[in-house]
Design a protein around this nucleic acid. Structure first.
Lengths: 210, 210
DNA sequence: TTCTTCGTGGTACGACCGTATCACTAATAT
DNA sequence: ATATTAGTGATACGGTCGTACCACGAAGAA
């Protein structure tokens, strides 16, 4: 055999080319030839590692969400060694807004995939149920923690607020994408609701009880 | 000349065929031949009334928003002869959720067009700025009215709340579309925020001051 | 070394798409 | 009555797309 190449690595390389091309020209407009050219390989190679376009798209979605999850994790880590609940929630929500090229591409493509999954049964709709559910559960958990620690309004319904915050972040992100809203105004709206949910003492993490 | 047909009427007929087929198979998958077949006319006819596909899609978007605007108006009219501010706002928000076939199609296609406009410069992005702005202004106005009438929390920031409500309604709608959330739970989330903004006395429109 | 098999390139095929062309019909204006 | 023209049908053209096919080199196995 020849070079004995790492298939998974090759697939990732091609998937990133797909993401770049789709981010520029739209998911609907990507063809296998263009992905191959962007990745610097031949059309045959793309066929070889992903037998069909459907599998390529499927893998691309997986790769996209993986990259985004890693990015959000990095943002959280960058938020400091031991951030308060509010800082964590805020970092989580703001990380999903399309404020730079990478998050812009993510938002655009994830939305494209989601819309596509409604009519094209081939693309599994499951990722668009499981991922949001996971995010919702994580956020609801954080809010409950904050409530238990006396840092958030104990009257609030944590799950409903989690759903609401994520829902707002998603549409605000799209508004930024289409140029209707500035990132700053989107952030202001989200902060407004965080101020409502979290008790104000949280902002400067007063060293009480610790 | 032959039949002397009404062009505008014909265009509307073809646009509705476009909307039907796009609602079934996705906006990206519609071709002029399929639209023609759905409308019961020949391919040449579609070419004749819309010279190019781009113009057909453009007209289709306009037709879609017009139909939806009319629908929301009808919903408002059906909400009673003199509804309170809360009933009006609630009707407005719930009318935009994809709960039946027509609103489902609208939500799907409007989202598809919006996402498409991000990468395809040909489709004007302006409708996706102007329409949301108008909705936001209308809703903010309603909330201010309610505040002035003492029916809503005077401390609330009407514009921020309007943006938030519309943002939530949009994402909740998409969640319904992809099957993540039930219409009932989406409605519950929206009602939760309406309860927060409006003073409870509003629900039964007490005949005070009138 | 020889044989097998993985990786790779080039290219062709068949289908579909948007658009263009040509012809024909029928209603109106003169 | 006839010339004109809006409306309509059938069909062809050029391009692109996803996929299939064929051939070859190179690395490990025998």
């Amino acid at each position: 055999m020849p070079k004995r190449v790492d298939h998974e690595e090759r697939r990732a390389q091609i998937a990133e080319a797909l993401i770049r091309v789709a981010g520029r020209r739209g998911l609907h407009a990507v063809g296998m030839r263009e992905v191959a050219a962007e990745a610097g390989v031949s059309l045959r190679l793309v066929q070889y590692y992903f037998e069909t376009k459907e599998k390529l798209l499927f893998y691309g979605l997986r790769h996209l969400t993986d990259r985004f999850t890693a990015r959000v994790g990095a943002r959280l880590a960058a938020a400091g060694p031991e951030p308060g609940p509010r800082a964590t929630v805020e970092a989580l929500l703001l990380a999903s807004l399309p404020t730079d090229e990478e998050s812009r591409t993510f938002h655009l493509l994830y939305s494209s995939y989601a819309i596509l999954s409604v009519t094209d049964g081939a693309l599994a709709a499951q990722p668009f149920i499981d991922n949001p559910d996971a995010a919702e559960n994580a956020l609801a958990g954080l809010l409950e923690q904050a409530q238990a620690a006396g840092l958030a309004d104990p009257e609030a319904d944590a799950r409903t607020e989690a759903i609401s915050l994520l829902a707002m972040a998603a549409t605000l992100g799209t508004s930024i994408l289409v140029g209707q809203r500035s990132p700053e105004s989107a952030i202001a709206v989200l902060r407004h609701h965080l101020d409502r949910i979290f008790t104000t003492a949280t902002r400067a993490p007063a060293r009480v009880g610790r």
